[in-house]
Nucleic acid binder design. Structure first.
Lengths: 341, 341
DNA sequence: GTGAAAGCGCTAACAT
DNA sequence: ATGTTAGCGCTTTCAC
């Protein structure tokens, strides 16, 4: 910057101000500075700038499982909003494990991120979140809600799970199994609650043998579903509570040579862009990932910019996509194939 | 750090050295420092550290389309390797557009990233790459190869596309259409070359009407395939050259009420974790995304650490997954369904 | 084994 | 409209 100033015959302060547009500069002067910048191919050093200004224009994002296409889309939505606002994204994967989550968020704090978006692992509230809060770094929780005075955005879980389950009940099913996700996070609990409530409302008792812990994992879900479906205890319907476990469940069913919906009615939480291409086509509750990601970024930017409202907790509604894996009357009666979205 | 030093009764210099393990410190002293750190809840400021040390321990990754699940996995593999090595990932999406790519990489350079991984958009070699090279920042290209003296990692394209096409030819097809990707990037060109070479080797002429420009996009591919398949010019087989276009193609075929492989034999470049669940199950060339990502990170780390070897260009082989969308004899003769992987 | 001090490249308050 | 300058919080050389 010194060099630019010398060549342009001005002070570094002026150079800084033309660079940042932070005060009026005589057009002629500005041109001289711009010319000097081009001449020596000067690039600003954002690290030095951050140190001096006390802001990094950087946001940290801690995601729990980057391999899940759901989180891929989430990252995309967040990144897009942030980059529009002039922020840059530092991305890390917590593997849904409190210790690596803590290491990650700690490193983000050390890097002086202006804010942080976190898909909290089970147990976060006692380990990593307090540390973040103590640092004063603006924080928004995403995907999993916690009982904390903190901005958070997540999908509607309970009502959607209720709807999925009720749909099966209305089609006459009484033995409805569930594959639920990772223990200890709100999405698992809430979706399970929706399932249980739907059963209760129809006077169907919870059967513990029909509750499978799929741990949000393809292989685990596959194993449990295979086991259940080859036992004498076969349910007539199954609801899977996230996309990974849906894949596992479908693999299990296929391996056993069973057919959906003839041998088993199936519905799931989480949709796929290519759900229409699966066989069977999946009846699913679709999250609005785009909105969730965008909203999280917006909340965070507000917080960073210091609008000090009270913490907001936002639920984004899901869409019920009725296709034919549920095997219900409405479908078999002839709803046409592959409604384009 | 001053505070820590004062409380521990040492100099900042000593504090710095215990923090970084950069020189021998008397165990007693070290303990006093550690205690002081805990006492005041000190966190190192990595921004200041970066400025002073001239390293940021940061790597930039510019991806062309985060929504594509392929790139999601790639990001995951890269992030994993980097975090093991103590680096942090700054992620951006170029939308496969040279101008936003240049803005992104510029911002990464300003932020003094220690290195950069780039999935170059078409036209990068004349705009953004020279700028990066000029800055002296270590660079590795990923997914798309360029004729440049620069580390790069990508999948085997030509041979795999050849194999896919040859497979259809061997099954007796002569009118084989192709949906190719974004113009101007090596993966598109090389995969097309493989296709063309296979046809040539069997004495089949290229038919321009069977060459569809899907632009690596679901909707574009869908439109072109629908058009072609409803014309009088229908091919007997189709090869799709990436995952997005595969989805588009399958949607088109389904919309027309046609069936694969009966009405159209189908093979594709890029596999899905859930390919077995599609109907039809896809015969596909699967990239080893994990290896590609890990290799890119390794090359970059080598470069950053200053091992100044000559640039390496690495091709990662694909796996041919034979399922039943190709409708070839081997399959119809009775290869069992859903081979688990 | 430890400390003093000179930067790293900027921003912004204060002057003019 | 522009310039001077004191930091921002560290690392690292040099000295002891």
């Amino acid at each position: 910057m010194d060099d630019v100033a010398r060549i342009a015959g001005v002070s570094v302060s002026t150079v800084s101000h033309v660079l940042n547009g932070t005060r009026n500069v005589n057009p002629t002067t500005r041109q001289r500075v711009d010319a000097a910048i081009v001449e020596i191919g000067y690039r600003r050093n954002v690290v030095a700038r951050s140190l001096a200004a006390g802001r990094t224009n950087t946001v940290g994002l801690s995601i729990s499982a980057l391999t899940n296409p759901y989180f891929g889309s989430l990252v995309h939505a967040v990144e897009q909003r942030l980059s529009e606002a002039g922020y840059v994204l530092i991305l890390g994967d917590s593997h849904d494990e409190p210790t690596s989550e803590k290491r990650l968020t700690g490193s983000l704090l050390d890097r002086q991120v202006d804010g942080m978006i976190l898909a909290p692992a089970a147990g976060s509230e006692s380990t990593t979140i307090p540390e973040i809060v103590r640092s004063g770094t603006p924080l928004v929780l995403i995907d999993r809600m916690l009982d904390l005075p903190c901005d958070q955005v997540g999908p509607e879980n309970d009502a959607s799970a209720y709807e999925l389950t009720a749909h099966l009940l209305d089609a006459g099913h009484r033995r409805i199994a569930i594959v639920r996700g990772i223990e200890g996070i709100s999405s698992t609990t809430e979706r399970f609650d929706g399932y249980a409530r739907a059963l209760a409302d129809r006077g169907v008792d919870l059967d513990p043998r029909l509750i499978l812990d799929g741990r949000s994992n393809v292989e685990v879900a596959e194993m449990h579903v295979r086991e259940l479906m080859s036992s004498s205890n076969r349910p007539s319907a199954l609801v899977s509570m996230n996309n990974s476990m849906t894949i596992g469940s479908l693999k299990a069913v296929r391996t056993l040579g069973l057919s959906i919906p003839d041998d088993l009615a199936f519905v799931c939480y989480d949709d796929f862009e290519w759900s229409d291409l699966f066989e069977p086509r999946l009846t699913a509750a679709a999250q609005d990932v785009q909105t969730i990601g965008r909203t999280a970024a917006d909340l965070l930017l507000n917080r960073i910019e210091g609008r000090d409202d009270k913490p907001r907790s936002i639920r984004v509604p899901t869409t019920f996509n009725h296709r034919n894996s549920c095997g219900c009357a409405a479908t078999s009666a002839g709803i046409p194939a592959a409604p384009e979205r």
